[in-house]
Deep mutational scan, measured.
Amino acid sequence: DSWHDTVDGIELELHGADEELLKLAKELLKRGVSEEEVRRIIEELLK
């Protein structure tokens, strides 16, 4: 799946992010949310 590559990229960027955020990112990508949107959501949550 192409979203796996996206998640791997996000995981590299979010090496400090907790497991729950990564699960959320994967779930959003699986549901068709764009990579940009996922990054934006996670950045908001990390604030």
Rank of each mutant, 00 (worst) to 15 (best):
R40D: 03
D1L: 01
K47N: 09
V38M: 05
I42Y: 02
E37T: 08
D5L: 01
I41L: 10
L45G: 03
I10Q: 13
K47P: 05
L21R: 02
V38N: 00
E36D: 13
E37L: 08
I41H: 04
E44S: 15
E19Y: 04
I41G: 00
V33Y: 14
E37D: 12
D1Q: 05
E44M: 13
K23C: 02
A25Q: 03
E43V: 08
G32A: 02
L45W: 08
A17M: 11
K26T: 07
S34G: 12
E27A: 05
T6G: 15
K30T: 08
L28S: 01
D5C: 03
I41N: 01
I42H: 00
L22S: 09
D8L: 09
V33M: 14
E44G: 11
S34E: 08
S2Q: 11
G9S: 11
A25G: 03
A17D: 07
L21W: 11
L12C: 14
D8P: 13
D18V: 11
E20A: 08
L22K: 14
E37M: 05
D18M: 13
L46K: 07
S2D: 11
H4N: 14
R39Q: 05
R40P: 00
H4P: 14
G32V: 01
K47Q: 10
E37N: 08
L29I: 12
G16S: 07
R31V: 11
S2M: 13
I42D: 00
E35D: 06
E36R: 07
E44I: 11
R39A: 06
V7W: 05
G16Q: 06
E43Q: 15
H4E: 11
L29E: 04
R39Y: 09
V38C: 02
G32E: 02
W3H: 15
V38I: 09
W3T: 11
E35N: 11
K26D: 10
D5Y: 00
E20R: 03
E19M: 03
K47H: 13
K23D: 07
L46F: 05
L46R: 09
L14I: 15
L28M: 10
L29D: 01
L29T: 02
A25T: 02
I41P: 00
L14T: 08
R39F: 05
D18S: 15
L24V: 08
L29C: 01
L24W: 05
K30N: 15
K23F: 06
V38K: 01
E27Q: 06
D1C: 03
E19T: 04
G32H: 02
D5F: 00
L28H: 01
D18T: 15
S2K: 09
E36V: 14
K23L: 09
K47I: 12
L28P: 00
E20N: 08
V7H: 07
E13W: 01
E35Y: 15
L14D: 04
E19Q: 05
I10D: 11
L45D: 00
V33D: 02
R39D: 02
K30F: 03
I42A: 01
R39E: 03
R39G: 04
D1F: 00
L28Q: 01
E37K: 08
E13K: 00
I42T: 01
E27G: 04
G9D: 13
L29A: 04
L45T: 06
E11P: 02
E19C: 05
E36P: 14
L29R: 09
S34K: 13
L24G: 02
E27C: 06
G9I: 15
H15R: 06
T6H: 15
H4M: 09
L28Y: 02
E11T: 02
I41F: 13
R31F: 06
L28T: 00
I41M: 07
E19S: 04
K23T: 10
L14Q: 07
E35T: 14
H4R: 05
W3P: 13
E19D: 15
A25D: 00
D1M: 01
L45V: 06
H15M: 10
T6M: 12
I10M: 15
E35L: 15
E20L: 11
R31E: 08
L14Y: 06
L29K: 04
W3I: 15
L46T: 07
R40E: 07
K30Y: 02
L45Y: 13
V38G: 01
D8S: 12
K30M: 11
S34A: 12
K47S: 11
I42W: 02
H15W: 06
W3C: 08
E35H: 12
E11I: 12
D5N: 04
G32D: 02
K47F: 04
E13M: 01
I42M: 06
L22C: 04
D8G: 13
S34F: 05
L46M: 14
I42V: 09
L45Q: 05
V33K: 05
D1R: 01
K47T: 10
E44K: 07
E43N: 12
L45K: 07
E13S: 01
L46C: 03
I10K: 15
S34R: 07
V33P: 00
E44F: 05
R31P: 02
H15K: 10
H4D: 11
L28G: 00
R39W: 06
V33T: 08
S2V: 06
E37Y: 02
E19R: 02
E35M: 15
E43D: 10
D1S: 08
D1T: 04
D1E: 12
A17K: 09
L12N: 13
L28A: 02
A17S: 09
L12M: 11
T6I: 15
D1K: 03
E20I: 09
L29M: 10
T6N: 13
T6P: 09
G16H: 06
E20W: 11
D8W: 00
D1Y: 00
E20M: 08
L21F: 06
G9Y: 12
I41K: 03
V7N: 15
R40V: 05
D1P: 09
L12T: 07
L14K: 10
L12Y: 01
E13I: 02
L14G: 08
E37F: 03
V38A: 03
R40N: 05
D5M: 01
A17Q: 07
K26G: 09
L21M: 13
K23Q: 09
G16E: 09
G9A: 09
L12E: 06
R40T: 07
L21H: 06
E20P: 06
G16F: 10
E36N: 13
K26M: 08
V7S: 10
S2T: 12
H4T: 11
G16R: 01
K30V: 13
S34P: 13
K26P: 00
L21E: 02
R39S: 05
L45I: 12
E19K: 06
E43F: 08
L29H: 04
H15Y: 02
E36K: 09
K47E: 05
L12D: 06
T6Q: 11
T6L: 10
G9W: 15
I42E: 00
E43S: 14
E19I: 04
I42N: 00
T6V: 13
A17I: 13
K23G: 05
E27V: 03
D5E: 13
D8A: 15
E11A: 05
I41E: 01
R31A: 11
L24N: 03
A25Y: 08
K30S: 10
V33A: 07
G16L: 13
L12V: 11
H15G: 15
L28K: 00
L14A: 08
H15S: 14
L22P: 01
L21Q: 05
E44W: 04
I42R: 00
S2R: 04
G9H: 14
L12R: 08
D18R: 05
E43P: 00
A17T: 10
E44L: 10
D8Y: 01
I41W: 06
A25V: 14
L24Y: 07
A17E: 06
G9M: 10
G32R: 01
E11W: 01
K30E: 14
K23H: 10
D18N: 11
G9F: 14
I10L: 15
I42Q: 00
D18A: 14
L14F: 10
H15E: 10
R39P: 01
G9P: 14
G16N: 06
E13Y: 00
W3A: 15
R40W: 06
E27M: 01
A25F: 05
E44V: 14
V33I: 08
H4G: 12
E37H: 04
A25R: 02
S2L: 09
S34I: 06
G16I: 13
R39H: 06
V7Y: 07
T6D: 09
G9K: 12
A25C: 01
L24C: 09
E19W: 04
L14E: 06
W3G: 15
G16A: 06
G32W: 01
W3L: 14
L28N: 00
E36S: 12
T6R: 05
I42C: 02
E36T: 14
D1H: 04
K47C: 01
H4K: 12
E37G: 06
S2P: 11
A25P: 00
H15V: 14
D5W: 00
H15C: 06
E11C: 05
K23W: 05
E36A: 14
E37S: 07
V7Q: 09
A17P: 04
H4V: 10
K26S: 09
D18H: 12
W3K: 14
E19H: 05
L12I: 15
E20G: 12
G32I: 01
H4W: 11
K47L: 12
E43T: 15
H15T: 08
E13D: 07
L22A: 08
L45H: 07
E19G: 04
D5K: 01
L46E: 03
G32L: 02
G9V: 15
R40A: 10
G16V: 11
D8F: 02
K47R: 13
K47M: 07
L24M: 10
L24I: 08
D18L: 10
E13N: 03
E36F: 05
L28E: 01
E13P: 12
E27N: 04
A17F: 07
L24D: 01
R40S: 08
E11G: 09
D8M: 10
E36Y: 03
E19V: 04
R31C: 05
H4Y: 09
H15P: 14
L46Y: 04
D18P: 14
V38H: 00
I10E: 07
L46H: 08
R31L: 09
I10H: 15
V33H: 15
